[in-house]
Amino acid sequence: MSKKTPAINSSSTADIAFLLLCYFLMTTTMGTQMGLSRRLPPIPDQNQKVEDQKVNQRNIIIVKVNSSDRIFAGNEPIDVSFLKDKIKEFVSNPSDNPSLPEKEMKEIEGLGQYPVSKGVISLQNDRGTSYKAYIAVQNELVKAINELRDELSMSRFGKKFASLDEDTQDIVKKAIPQNISEAEPKNVGKK
C-alpha cells in the first residue's frame, strides 16, 4: 500500500502572484502623452511667386522671443505674465479700438451673427531662444485663446468650453479661431 502524499500547501502561491502583480503594476506606464498641438504652415510652392500676404497692420501682433528669452509683443518688451492679457485684449478688442484688429460679422450656424476677429498672432523666435521660453510663450498664447473660448461658451451655452460636446466646440472654435502663425525662420542676432 502506498502512503497518501500530503497535499502541498498552496496558500503562498497567492503571495507569489501578488509580488509579480505588483512588479507589473509598478513598471507599467499608464503614461499619457501630453503636449501643445500645433499645425505647421505648408511650405510655399517653389514656382509660386512669394507674395507678401497683405495683412492690415492693425490685424497682426508680432510676438518675438530673442536669444536671451526676452519677449517683445508689438515692439514693446513685456513680461510673460502680462502676455496673456495683452493677447486677449488684442483678439477680443472689446472697445473697438482702431489700432486693434478689425472684426468681421460672420454668420455662424448655431450662434447667429458673431463678430469674428481678424487678428493674427505671429510668433517669431531666434536660433538662440531656449525651448523652455518658447513653450512658455506658446502656452500663454493658447491660454489666452482658451480663456476667450471659455468666456464665450459660458455666456452662450452656460458651460465651460471643455465640457461642451464636439459640435458646439466647433461653433465656438469658428467664432474664436486660433490664428497663431509661426513665422519662417529668420537669422537675427547670430551668436
Partner: peptide, 10 residues
C-alpha cells in the same frame, strides 16, 4: 520636457 498648463492629451 517643459511645463505648460494648457497641455492636451495626444
Amino acid at each position: 520636457i517643459p511645463q505648460a498648463s494648457e497641455s492636451v492629451k495626444l
